[in-house]
């Protein structure tokens, strides 16, 4: 099955991603192209998916299992994306999984040598879910390039656990597994620093989110859905409708939107 727009709806999401017997935790692996996501995936699962140093290699999503501290985890390797704005099919697939697939943990793999660019994705993921672990990969390369990263400061700024790794050498992977398990089981509860937009957006998002709250029934992050609505993301609305099994446009909803408008 190809990566076509038709094939990226929620229905295919279910058969593509959602684990068959839902025993154990689901861990999503997100990251920019070339952050070493496939290497991390292989290192964690012991699978030998071919890795290549070029963007877009992971066309089909790979899935693998690993066990740690007596828990079993299903790792889903998402396509490499620069953002969750869903401007390409890959981004849409990744976003749909993170928001509708409801993984227990989302690991965002970032390249330590160009942290700033890769942080955009981390920030966007934290808007969807708080259960995020940052895998600061390619630390070996950063050391070679004499780039020093203040990991506690980074973790503090983000409000997320940050694990430095060099997946190719196996560095930091044990700790990564520990942290994934801690977040999955709830012993570690990340509180991501919220991103504050300008006053107009915040006000509109706040009002819209309050209206959406009862509709979403806690199954999706209302603030995030409100922001996406404001942004005008058509693909997401359809996804939400499928996910909730309910049209956002049915009489009850329309009424509420009118109230918001007033």
């Amino acid at each position: 099955m190809g990566l076509t727009r038709q094939a990226t709806g929620f229905s295919t999401l279910q058969e593509n991603f959602l684990p068959d017997g839902s025993n154990g935790y689901v861990v999503a692996l997100a990251g920019n192209p070339n952050a070493g996501k496939s290497t991390v995936f292989n290192a964690l699962t012991g699978l030998k998916q071919h890795t290549g140093n070029w963007p877009g290699k992971t066309v089909l999503q790979a899935r693998g299992k690993f066990t740690h501290q007596g828990h079993s985890f299903t790792l889903v390797d998402l396509p490499g994306t620069y953002s969750l704005l869903a401007s390409s099919v890959e981004e849409q697939v990744a976003r749909d999984f993170i928001c509708f697939g409801r993984p227990d943990v989302t690991v965002v793999v970032v390249d330590a040598t160009c942290l700033e660019r890769h942080l955009n994705l981390v920030l966007q993921v934290t808007e969807v879910t708080s259960k995020v672990v940052v895998c600061l990969n390619l630390m070996d390369e950063a050391r070679r390039k004499k780039i020093v990263i203040d990991v506690p400061a980074l973790a503090g700024e983000l409000g997320l656990p940050v694990v430095p790794t060099a997946a190719r050498k196996g560095e930091g992977l044990a700790r990564l597994k520990d942290v994934i398990a801690a977040v999955a089981t709830g012993t570690l509860h990340p509180v991501p620093t919220p991103i504050v937009y300008d006053a107009a957006i915040e006000a509109a998002a706040g009002r819209l989110a309050r209206q959406l709250q009862p509709l979403l029934r806690g199954r999706l992050n209302a603030r995030w859905v409100a922001l996406r609505l404001l942004e005008g993301d058509a693909t997401l609305i359809e996804g939400i409708q499928e996910f909730l099994g309910r049209e956002l446009d049915d009489p009850g909803v329309k009424l509420q939107l009118k109230e918001v408008l007033a």
């Binding site: 942290l115 390039k145 004499k146 780039i147 020093v148």
Partner: peptide, 10 residues
């Protein structure tokens, strides 16, 4: 801003 605070390039 985050990168500015956390990254030091020698």
């Amino acid at each position: 801003a985050i990168a500015f605070r956390a990254v030091e390039k020698n």
